[in-house]
Write a protein that binds this DNA or RNA. Structure first.
Lengths: 195, 195
DNA sequence: CGCATTTTTGATACACGTCAATCTCCGTGG
DNA sequence: CCACGGAGATTGACGTGTATCAAAAATGCG
Protein backbone atom coordinates (compact mmCIF):
# COMPACT_ATOMS: atom_id res chain seq x y z
CA UNK A 1 0.00 0.00 0.00
CA UNK A 2 2.86 2.36 0.83
CA UNK A 3 5.31 2.91 -1.96
CA UNK A 4 8.86 4.26 -1.90
CA UNK A 5 10.89 5.74 -4.74
CA UNK A 6 14.36 7.27 -4.91
CA UNK A 7 15.55 10.60 -6.27
CA UNK A 8 15.34 10.72 -10.04
CA UNK A 9 13.01 7.75 -10.30
CA UNK A 10 9.91 8.05 -12.42
CA UNK A 11 6.68 7.29 -10.58
CA UNK A 12 4.59 7.27 -13.73
CA UNK A 13 4.76 8.36 -17.34
CA UNK A 14 2.35 10.65 -19.11
CA UNK A 15 -0.02 8.51 -21.16
CA UNK A 16 0.38 5.32 -19.16
CA UNK A 17 -2.42 3.79 -17.13
CA UNK A 18 -2.55 3.89 -13.33
CA UNK A 19 -4.22 5.45 -10.34
CA UNK A 20 -3.85 8.52 -8.17
CA UNK A 21 -1.33 8.92 -5.35
CA UNK A 22 -0.93 10.94 -2.23
CA UNK A 23 2.56 12.18 -1.43
CA UNK A 24 3.34 11.36 2.20
CA UNK A 25 6.97 12.49 2.17
CA UNK A 26 9.43 13.90 -0.33
CA UNK A 27 8.73 15.97 -3.40
CA UNK A 28 7.72 15.23 -6.96
CA UNK A 29 7.99 17.16 -10.18
CA UNK A 30 5.27 16.88 -12.81
CA UNK A 31 6.14 17.40 -16.44
CA UNK A 32 3.88 17.62 -19.40
CA UNK A 33 4.81 16.70 -22.93
CA UNK A 34 5.14 19.74 -25.18
CA UNK A 35 4.08 19.92 -28.83
CA UNK A 36 7.82 19.88 -29.66
CA UNK A 37 8.17 16.41 -28.24
CA UNK A 38 10.20 17.13 -25.12
CA UNK A 39 8.83 17.53 -21.62
CA UNK A 40 8.47 20.81 -19.74
CA UNK A 41 8.12 21.35 -16.03
CA UNK A 42 4.44 21.70 -15.20
CA UNK A 43 4.02 21.53 -11.46
CA UNK A 44 5.37 20.51 -8.11
CA UNK A 45 3.89 18.18 -5.52
CA UNK A 46 4.96 18.11 -1.91
CA UNK A 47 3.93 16.40 1.28
CA UNK A 48 0.15 16.07 1.44
CA UNK A 49 -0.54 16.65 -2.24
CA UNK A 50 -2.58 14.31 -4.42
CA UNK A 51 -1.26 13.67 -7.92
CA UNK A 52 -2.61 11.75 -10.88
CA UNK A 53 -6.29 12.39 -10.09
CA UNK A 54 -6.88 12.83 -13.82
CA UNK A 55 -6.72 9.05 -14.16
CA UNK A 56 -10.11 8.85 -12.47
CA UNK A 57 -11.58 10.50 -15.55
CA UNK A 58 -9.21 9.48 -18.36
CA UNK A 59 -7.66 6.28 -17.08
CA UNK A 60 -4.19 7.52 -18.05
CA UNK A 61 -1.85 10.12 -16.58
CA UNK A 62 -1.58 13.55 -18.20
CA UNK A 63 1.79 14.31 -16.64
CA UNK A 64 5.01 12.47 -15.95
CA UNK A 65 5.95 12.29 -12.29
CA UNK A 66 9.59 12.19 -11.18
CA UNK A 67 10.92 12.11 -7.63
CA UNK A 68 13.01 15.09 -6.56
CA UNK A 69 13.96 13.40 -3.34
CA UNK A 70 13.31 10.05 -1.67
CA UNK A 71 9.50 9.81 -1.58
CA UNK A 72 6.86 7.93 0.32
CA UNK A 73 3.54 7.54 -1.47
CA UNK A 74 0.16 6.00 -0.89
CA UNK A 75 -2.51 5.15 -3.42
CA UNK A 76 -5.46 7.53 -3.33
CA UNK A 77 -8.21 7.34 -2.31
CA UNK A 78 -7.48 5.11 0.65
CA UNK A 79 -10.52 2.87 0.19
CA UNK A 80 -9.79 1.33 -3.19
CA UNK A 81 -13.15 0.52 -4.75
CA UNK A 82 -15.26 3.12 -3.03
CA UNK A 83 -16.38 6.24 -4.93
CA UNK A 84 -14.54 9.42 -3.98
CA UNK A 85 -16.57 11.93 -1.95
CA UNK A 86 -17.05 15.25 -3.72
CA UNK A 87 -15.54 17.07 -0.75
CA UNK A 88 -12.28 15.13 -1.19
CA UNK A 89 -12.15 16.12 -4.82
CA UNK A 90 -12.81 19.73 -3.90
CA UNK A 91 -10.09 19.59 -1.29
CA UNK A 92 -7.70 18.25 -3.90
CA UNK A 93 -8.75 20.92 -6.37
CA UNK A 94 -8.08 23.70 -3.90
CA UNK A 95 -4.70 22.37 -2.80
CA UNK A 96 -3.72 22.00 -6.44
CA UNK A 97 -4.67 25.61 -7.15
CA UNK A 98 -2.69 26.87 -4.20
CA UNK A 99 0.34 24.77 -5.11
CA UNK A 100 0.20 26.14 -8.64
CA UNK A 101 0.07 29.68 -7.29
CA UNK A 102 3.12 28.97 -5.15
CA UNK A 103 5.05 27.55 -8.08
CA UNK A 104 4.16 30.60 -10.14
CA UNK A 105 5.42 32.78 -7.31
CA UNK A 106 8.71 30.85 -7.44
CA UNK A 107 9.34 32.47 -10.80
CA UNK A 108 9.04 36.07 -9.59
CA UNK A 109 11.74 38.30 -8.26
CA UNK A 110 15.49 37.87 -8.08
CA UNK A 111 17.35 34.60 -8.21
CA UNK A 112 18.43 34.52 -4.57
CA UNK A 113 14.90 35.07 -3.33
CA UNK A 114 13.44 32.46 -5.66
CA UNK A 115 15.84 29.75 -4.61
CA UNK A 116 15.30 30.61 -0.97
CA UNK A 117 11.54 30.33 -1.38
CA UNK A 118 11.87 26.99 -3.14
CA UNK A 119 13.99 25.67 -0.31
CA UNK A 120 11.43 26.86 2.24
CA UNK A 121 8.64 25.22 0.28
CA UNK A 122 10.42 21.88 0.20
CA UNK A 123 11.36 22.00 3.86
CA UNK A 124 9.52 19.75 6.26
CA UNK A 125 9.56 19.46 10.05
CA UNK A 126 12.60 17.43 10.98
CA UNK A 127 11.64 13.76 10.86
CA UNK A 128 14.82 12.44 12.42
CA UNK A 129 14.91 9.52 14.81
CA UNK A 130 14.05 11.49 17.93
CA UNK A 131 10.33 11.76 17.52
CA UNK A 132 9.67 15.24 18.89
CA UNK A 133 12.11 17.31 16.83
CA UNK A 134 9.95 20.31 17.34
CA UNK A 135 10.68 23.37 15.25
CA UNK A 136 13.67 22.21 13.23
CA UNK A 137 13.11 22.23 9.51
CA UNK A 138 14.97 19.94 7.16
CA UNK A 139 15.28 19.68 3.40
CA UNK A 140 16.59 17.22 0.89
CA UNK A 141 17.48 19.47 -2.03
CA UNK A 142 16.67 18.18 -5.52
CA UNK A 143 19.36 18.00 -8.19
CA UNK A 144 20.33 21.53 -9.30
CA UNK A 145 18.94 21.01 -12.78
CA UNK A 146 15.50 20.28 -11.32
CA UNK A 147 15.67 23.32 -9.07
CA UNK A 148 16.59 25.32 -12.17
CA UNK A 149 13.60 23.97 -14.11
CA UNK A 150 11.27 24.89 -11.26
CA UNK A 151 12.56 28.41 -10.71
CA UNK A 152 13.19 29.17 -14.39
CA UNK A 153 16.85 29.83 -13.68
CA UNK A 154 19.94 28.01 -14.89
CA UNK A 155 21.71 25.19 -13.12
CA UNK A 156 24.73 27.42 -12.55
CA UNK A 157 22.75 30.27 -11.03
CA UNK A 158 20.92 27.89 -8.70
CA UNK A 159 24.23 26.41 -7.59
CA UNK A 160 25.55 29.88 -6.81
CA UNK A 161 22.44 30.77 -4.80
CA UNK A 162 22.55 27.53 -2.82
CA UNK A 163 26.20 28.22 -2.04
CA UNK A 164 25.12 31.66 -0.89
CA UNK A 165 22.49 30.20 1.43
CA UNK A 166 25.11 27.87 2.87
CA UNK A 167 27.58 30.69 3.39
CA UNK A 168 24.96 32.91 5.01
CA UNK A 169 24.12 30.10 7.41
CA UNK A 170 20.53 29.51 6.26
CA UNK A 171 21.42 25.99 5.13
CA UNK A 172 23.53 23.79 7.36
CA UNK A 173 24.82 20.49 5.90
CA UNK A 174 23.36 17.46 7.60
CA UNK A 175 24.97 14.04 7.82
CA UNK A 176 22.86 10.94 8.06
CA UNK A 177 23.86 8.42 10.67
CA UNK A 178 26.81 6.65 9.08
CA UNK A 179 26.88 7.86 5.50
CA UNK A 180 27.16 11.44 4.31
CA UNK A 181 24.17 12.48 2.21
CA UNK A 182 25.26 15.49 0.22
CA UNK A 183 21.93 17.17 -0.34
CA UNK A 184 20.41 17.05 3.08
CA UNK A 185 20.30 20.28 5.09
CA UNK A 186 18.97 21.77 8.25
CA UNK A 187 17.29 25.15 8.04
CA UNK A 188 18.18 27.96 10.40
CA UNK A 189 15.24 30.18 11.36
CA UNK A 190 12.05 28.43 10.41
CA UNK A 191 9.80 31.08 8.89
CA UNK A 192 10.27 34.50 7.31
CA UNK A 193 13.92 35.54 7.46
CA UNK A 194 15.68 38.65 6.24
CA UNK A 195 15.48 39.16 2.46
CA UNK B 1 -27.91 34.19 -15.08
CA UNK B 2 -25.36 35.56 -17.53
CA UNK B 3 -23.09 38.23 -16.12
CA UNK B 4 -20.93 40.79 -17.90
CA UNK B 5 -17.97 42.76 -16.57
CA UNK B 6 -15.60 45.23 -18.16
CA UNK B 7 -11.81 45.31 -18.28
CA UNK B 8 -10.32 46.09 -14.89
CA UNK B 9 -13.49 45.28 -12.98
CA UNK B 10 -13.28 43.00 -9.98
CA UNK B 11 -15.56 39.97 -10.17
CA UNK B 12 -14.96 38.99 -6.57
CA UNK B 13 -12.57 39.65 -3.73
CA UNK B 14 -10.55 37.10 -1.84
CA UNK B 15 -12.32 36.41 1.45
CA UNK B 16 -15.78 37.50 0.36
CA UNK B 17 -18.70 35.10 0.05
CA UNK B 18 -20.10 33.95 -3.28
CA UNK B 19 -20.36 31.07 -5.69
CA UNK B 20 -18.39 29.60 -8.57
CA UNK B 21 -18.40 30.91 -12.14
CA UNK B 22 -17.70 29.61 -15.57
CA UNK B 23 -15.94 31.98 -17.95
CA UNK B 24 -17.83 32.03 -21.26
CA UNK B 25 -15.80 34.77 -22.92
CA UNK B 26 -12.92 37.05 -22.02
CA UNK B 27 -10.10 36.40 -19.58
CA UNK B 28 -9.67 36.77 -15.86
CA UNK B 29 -6.67 37.09 -13.60
CA UNK B 30 -6.67 35.51 -10.17
CA UNK B 31 -4.58 37.04 -7.42
CA UNK B 32 -3.88 35.75 -3.98
CA UNK B 33 -3.08 37.87 -0.98
CA UNK B 34 0.55 37.54 0.10
CA UNK B 35 1.82 37.51 3.67
CA UNK B 36 3.17 41.02 2.97
CA UNK B 37 -0.33 42.34 2.47
CA UNK B 38 -0.35 43.02 -1.24
CA UNK B 39 -1.72 40.71 -3.92
CA UNK B 40 0.34 38.59 -6.30
CA UNK B 41 -0.70 37.09 -9.59
CA UNK B 42 -1.76 33.50 -9.00
CA UNK B 43 -3.46 32.21 -12.09
CA UNK B 44 -5.26 32.92 -15.30
CA UNK B 45 -8.73 31.86 -16.42
CA UNK B 46 -9.87 31.86 -20.00
CA UNK B 47 -12.91 30.77 -21.98
CA UNK B 48 -14.30 27.54 -20.58
CA UNK B 49 -12.57 27.69 -17.20
CA UNK B 50 -14.37 27.41 -13.88
CA UNK B 51 -13.24 29.75 -11.13
CA UNK B 52 -14.15 30.10 -7.49
CA UNK B 53 -14.92 26.42 -6.94
CA UNK B 54 -13.27 26.72 -3.52
CA UNK B 55 -16.42 28.45 -2.29
CA UNK B 56 -18.20 25.10 -2.42
CA UNK B 57 -15.99 23.98 0.43
CA UNK B 58 -15.13 27.20 2.27
CA UNK B 59 -17.99 29.51 1.38
CA UNK B 60 -15.56 32.32 0.58
CA UNK B 61 -13.18 32.94 -2.31
CA UNK B 62 -9.47 32.25 -1.88
CA UNK B 63 -8.45 34.50 -4.76
CA UNK B 64 -9.42 37.88 -6.13
CA UNK B 65 -10.72 37.80 -9.70
CA UNK B 66 -10.22 40.75 -12.05
CA UNK B 67 -11.27 41.01 -15.68
CA UNK B 68 -8.45 41.37 -18.20
CA UNK B 69 -10.92 42.03 -20.99
CA UNK B 70 -14.68 42.33 -21.32
CA UNK B 71 -16.00 39.06 -19.89
CA UNK B 72 -19.14 36.98 -20.05
CA UNK B 73 -19.72 34.70 -17.09
CA UNK B 74 -22.26 32.19 -15.88
CA UNK B 75 -22.80 30.85 -12.40
CA UNK B 76 -21.57 27.29 -11.94
CA UNK B 77 -22.89 24.68 -11.74
CA UNK B 78 -25.78 25.41 -14.08
CA UNK B 79 -28.44 23.74 -11.89
CA UNK B 80 -28.30 25.90 -8.78
CA UNK B 81 -29.39 23.69 -5.93
CA UNK B 82 -28.33 20.32 -7.31
CA UNK B 83 -25.18 18.61 -5.99
CA UNK B 84 -22.23 18.72 -8.39
CA UNK B 85 -21.39 15.40 -10.05
CA UNK B 86 -17.92 14.12 -9.18
CA UNK B 87 -17.04 13.95 -12.87
CA UNK B 88 -17.64 17.70 -13.23
CA UNK B 89 -15.35 18.38 -10.32
CA UNK B 90 -12.71 16.12 -11.82
CA UNK B 91 -13.06 17.87 -15.14
CA UNK B 92 -12.57 21.21 -13.39
CA UNK B 93 -9.58 19.86 -11.51
CA UNK B 94 -7.90 18.70 -14.70
CA UNK B 95 -8.54 21.91 -16.61
CA UNK B 96 -7.18 23.88 -13.66
CA UNK B 97 -4.01 21.79 -13.61
CA UNK B 98 -3.48 22.27 -17.33
CA UNK B 99 -4.12 25.99 -17.14
CA UNK B 100 -1.60 26.26 -14.32
CA UNK B 101 0.96 24.37 -16.39
CA UNK B 102 0.39 26.77 -19.27
CA UNK B 103 0.81 29.81 -17.05
CA UNK B 104 4.03 28.36 -15.69
CA UNK B 105 5.22 27.85 -19.25
CA UNK B 106 4.51 31.54 -19.90
CA UNK B 107 7.39 32.34 -17.58
CA UNK B 108 9.99 30.30 -19.47
CA UNK B 109 12.21 31.41 -22.30
CA UNK B 110 12.84 34.80 -23.81
CA UNK B 111 10.55 37.80 -23.55
CA UNK B 112 9.38 37.81 -27.18
CA UNK B 113 8.40 34.15 -27.03
CA UNK B 114 6.59 34.56 -23.72
CA UNK B 115 4.48 37.47 -24.85
CA UNK B 116 3.67 35.68 -28.11
CA UNK B 117 2.52 32.60 -26.21
CA UNK B 118 0.36 34.69 -23.90
CA UNK B 119 -1.29 36.33 -26.89
CA UNK B 120 -1.95 32.94 -28.47
CA UNK B 121 -3.42 31.66 -25.21
CA UNK B 122 -5.81 34.59 -24.95
CA UNK B 123 -6.85 34.39 -28.59
CA UNK B 124 -10.29 33.04 -29.41
CA UNK B 125 -11.97 32.17 -32.69
CA UNK B 126 -13.27 35.41 -34.19
CA UNK B 127 -16.67 36.05 -32.70
CA UNK B 128 -17.59 38.92 -34.98
CA UNK B 129 -21.10 39.43 -36.31
CA UNK B 130 -20.83 37.00 -39.22
CA UNK B 131 -21.43 33.75 -37.41
CA UNK B 132 -19.08 31.43 -39.28
CA UNK B 133 -15.83 33.38 -39.04
CA UNK B 134 -13.93 30.18 -39.47
CA UNK B 135 -10.23 30.18 -38.73
CA UNK B 136 -9.65 33.82 -37.82
CA UNK B 137 -8.33 34.33 -34.32
CA UNK B 138 -8.92 37.51 -32.36
CA UNK B 139 -7.60 38.89 -29.09
CA UNK B 140 -8.43 41.69 -26.74
CA UNK B 141 -5.09 42.34 -25.09
CA UNK B 142 -5.11 43.08 -21.35
CA UNK B 143 -3.47 46.22 -19.99
CA UNK B 144 0.31 45.96 -20.32
CA UNK B 145 0.82 45.86 -16.56
CA UNK B 146 -1.36 42.76 -16.32
CA UNK B 147 0.49 41.09 -19.17
CA UNK B 148 3.69 41.93 -17.32
CA UNK B 149 2.41 40.36 -14.10
CA UNK B 150 1.47 37.18 -15.95
CA UNK B 151 4.71 36.76 -17.85
CA UNK B 152 6.98 37.98 -15.04
CA UNK B 153 8.32 40.76 -17.25
CA UNK B 154 8.05 44.52 -16.92
CA UNK B 155 5.39 46.71 -18.44
CA UNK B 156 7.99 48.31 -20.71
CA UNK B 157 9.36 45.02 -22.01
CA UNK B 158 5.85 43.76 -22.73
CA UNK B 159 5.07 46.95 -24.60
CA UNK B 160 8.19 46.51 -26.73
CA UNK B 161 7.30 42.91 -27.52
CA UNK B 162 3.73 43.77 -28.47
CA UNK B 163 5.07 46.48 -30.74
CA UNK B 164 7.36 43.86 -32.26
CA UNK B 165 4.44 41.53 -32.90
CA UNK B 166 2.57 44.37 -34.58
CA UNK B 167 5.55 45.27 -36.73
CA UNK B 168 6.14 41.66 -37.73
CA UNK B 169 2.53 41.39 -38.80
CA UNK B 170 1.42 38.79 -36.25
CA UNK B 171 -0.98 41.29 -34.66
CA UNK B 172 -3.17 43.43 -36.87
CA UNK B 173 -5.15 46.27 -35.23
CA UNK B 174 -8.87 45.71 -35.37
CA UNK B 175 -11.51 48.44 -35.33
CA UNK B 176 -14.92 47.75 -33.88
CA UNK B 177 -17.86 48.91 -35.95
CA UNK B 178 -18.05 52.59 -35.20
CA UNK B 179 -15.58 53.14 -32.38
CA UNK B 180 -11.89 52.27 -32.39
CA UNK B 181 -10.99 49.80 -29.65
CA UNK B 182 -7.29 50.17 -29.07
CA UNK B 183 -6.51 46.73 -27.72
CA UNK B 184 -8.35 44.50 -30.13
CA UNK B 185 -6.29 42.60 -32.70
CA UNK B 186 -6.58 39.99 -35.39
CA UNK B 187 -4.01 37.21 -35.41
CA UNK B 188 -2.19 36.22 -38.57
CA UNK B 189 -1.45 32.48 -38.82
CA UNK B 190 -3.65 30.65 -36.37
CA UNK B 191 -1.46 27.97 -34.79
CA UNK B 192 2.24 27.36 -34.36
CA UNK B 193 4.23 30.03 -36.19
CA UNK B 194 7.97 30.57 -36.56
CA UNK B 195 9.76 31.28 -33.26
C1' DC C 1 41.42 3.12 -7.85
C1' DG C 2 39.51 5.15 -12.08
C1' DC C 3 35.65 6.84 -14.57
C1' DA C 4 31.12 9.21 -15.24
C1' DT C 5 28.09 12.43 -13.38
C1' DT C 6 26.99 16.28 -10.80
C1' DT C 7 28.28 20.45 -8.63
C1' DT C 8 30.96 24.45 -8.04
C1' DT C 9 33.40 28.44 -9.45
C1' DG C 10 35.13 31.94 -12.80
C1' DA C 11 35.05 35.31 -16.83
C1' DT C 12 32.40 37.47 -20.22
C1' DA C 13 28.23 38.90 -22.94
C1' DC C 14 23.68 40.18 -23.50
C1' DA C 15 18.69 40.42 -22.47
C1' DC C 16 15.94 42.64 -19.65
C1' DG C 17 15.10 45.96 -15.75
C1' DT C 18 15.23 50.68 -14.54
C1' DC C 19 14.62 55.52 -15.12
C1' DA C 20 12.80 59.09 -17.81
C1' DA C 21 10.69 61.58 -21.67
C1' DT C 22 7.15 61.61 -25.07
C1' DC C 23 2.95 60.24 -27.19
C1' DT C 24 -1.84 58.72 -27.63
C1' DC C 25 -6.25 58.30 -26.06
C1' DC C 26 -10.30 60.00 -23.42
C1' DG C 27 -13.03 62.53 -20.49
C1' DT C 28 -14.01 67.21 -18.56
C1' DG C 29 -14.93 71.75 -18.43
C1' DG C 30 -14.33 76.44 -20.22
C1' DC D 1 -15.21 73.33 -30.48
C1' DC D 2 -10.92 73.40 -28.42
C1' DA D 3 -7.79 73.69 -24.30
C1' DC D 4 -6.50 71.11 -20.47
C1' DG D 5 -5.18 67.18 -17.66
C1' DG D 6 -4.71 62.37 -16.31
C1' DA D 7 -3.91 57.49 -17.29
C1' DG D 8 -1.98 54.18 -20.03
C1' DA D 9 1.25 53.07 -23.75
C1' DT D 10 5.40 53.75 -26.33
C1' DT D 11 10.17 54.58 -27.07
C1' DG D 12 15.03 55.60 -25.75
C1' DA D 13 19.46 55.32 -23.04
C1' DC D 14 21.90 53.03 -19.72
C1' DG D 15 23.14 49.68 -15.96
C1' DT D 16 22.89 45.18 -13.99
C1' DG D 17 21.50 40.45 -12.99
C1' DT D 18 21.66 36.39 -14.98
C1' DA D 19 22.77 33.36 -19.05
C1' DT D 20 26.45 31.45 -21.37
C1' DC D 21 30.76 29.25 -22.04
C1' DA D 22 34.47 26.89 -19.93
C1' DA D 23 37.20 24.60 -16.52
C1' DA D 24 38.00 22.63 -12.07
C1' DA D 25 36.37 20.25 -8.06
C1' DA D 26 33.49 17.05 -5.66
C1' DT D 27 30.69 13.01 -5.49
C1' DG D 28 29.02 8.52 -6.55
C1' DC D 29 29.71 3.92 -8.55
C1' DG D 30 31.71 -0.26 -10.56
Amino acid sequence: MRHHIATGEILYQSGSAGAAWRVLAGSIRLDRPTPEGDAAFASLAIRGDVIGAETMLFGVYSFTATALAPCTLMSWPAGEGAPVPASDLLQTLIVTECRAAEVIALRCGQAAERVRRLVMLLAAPGADGGGSARDTLQVTLPPRQDMADITALTLETVSRMVSGLRRSGVLKPLTETGSVSGNRFRLAGSIGESP
